[in-house]
Computed example of a mutant assay.
Amino acid sequence: MKILRITSSPRKEYSKSIKLGAAIIEKLLAAHPGASVKHKDLTASPFPHLEEVHLKGFYTPVEYRLPGYDEAVRHSDEAIAEIKEADVLVIEAPLYNLTISSTLKAWIDHIVRNDITFRHTPDGDVGLLTGKKVYVAVTAGYIYSEGPGKAKDFVRPLLQAILGMLGITDVTFIMAEGLSVPGVKETAFQKALDSIKI
């Protein structure tokens, strides 16, 4: 089994999403001896935000690409190849300002490509990256799974929709929330660890 781990937090050793992702990886390796892990740290090698040259490269057939287009598309092609190769993805997604980090969004913008990872049809979009399992490690200072914060969680609905668009529908969210809430933060992370089921 091949596992692709996606890190999007810049906080390194202080990051709870990195710790949660590592715990998921640990359980995956325990359940699947011999599995390999490829780690993509989006903060160490950030994906460029989309510019005109990227979009032109995406939509121009290889034989007609102008100089510079191939380099502009390289990040996207490599990221898509990594996903295709993987059986399982572990995406670490801390909740920043109610949504995902810009580093994770930039990666997403490079992997969502018409006729490569999904296809428009008269009956709706059809995903082309099927047969994969995804675990998403979500961390948040406030509580977003219930109560007044639930309507402000744009991490899980966004990732569920985008992954589904790509044909990846087997998605499990592991959430450590309330990490800054007195009376909750003391046990919040351990509660998330205990909820990991592989």
Rank of each mutant, 00 (worst) to 15 (best):
A23L: 02
K27Y: 03
T60A: 04
H110K: 06
R119G: 01
I100V: 15
S76K: 07
A86T: 08
S101G: 07
L55R: 08
V73A: 02
D115R: 12
R65N: 04
I116G: 00
L50Q: 13
I100E: 06
A106S: 15
I91F: 10
L95S: 01
I108F: 12
D115W: 03
I116Q: 09
A35N: 03
F47K: 06
H75C: 09
I25Y: 01
F58A: 09
K12Y: 09
V62F: 11
P48T: 02
G34F: 02
Y69H: 14
N97D: 04
H32F: 10
I80C: 03
K84I: 07
V90F: 01
I83E: 04
H39M: 09
E82M: 01
S15M: 00
L55K: 06
K40E: 15
A31D: 14
D109W: 03
E51L: 11
V90N: 05
P61I: 09
R65V: 11
D77A: 13
H54W: 13
A35I: 10
E26G: 00
S15N: 03
K40W: 15
G57E: 10
S45A: 14
H54I: 03
I25G: 00
E63G: 04
P61M: 02
I111T: 14
D41Q: 08
R119A: 10
I108V: 15
N114C: 01
S101C: 04
L89R: 06
L66K: 15
A81S: 09
H49R: 03
L66W: 00
S45G: 03
A30G: 12
K40M: 13
E92A: 14
V112M: 10
T103D: 12
A30N: 12
I91Q: 00
T60C: 13
E26K: 12
E63I: 07
V73Y: 09
I83V: 15
S15I: 07
Y96G: 02
A22Q: 15
Y96R: 10
Y69P: 02
N114R: 03
E13T: 12
H75P: 15
A35E: 07
G68D: 09
V53P: 02
V112K: 00
A81D: 09
T99Y: 00
S45W: 00
R65I: 11
T60R: 06
I25N: 12
D109V: 06
P94Q: 08
A35D: 11
A79S: 12
T117D: 09
I111S: 06
E26R: 12
L20D: 07
V112Y: 00
I100S: 07
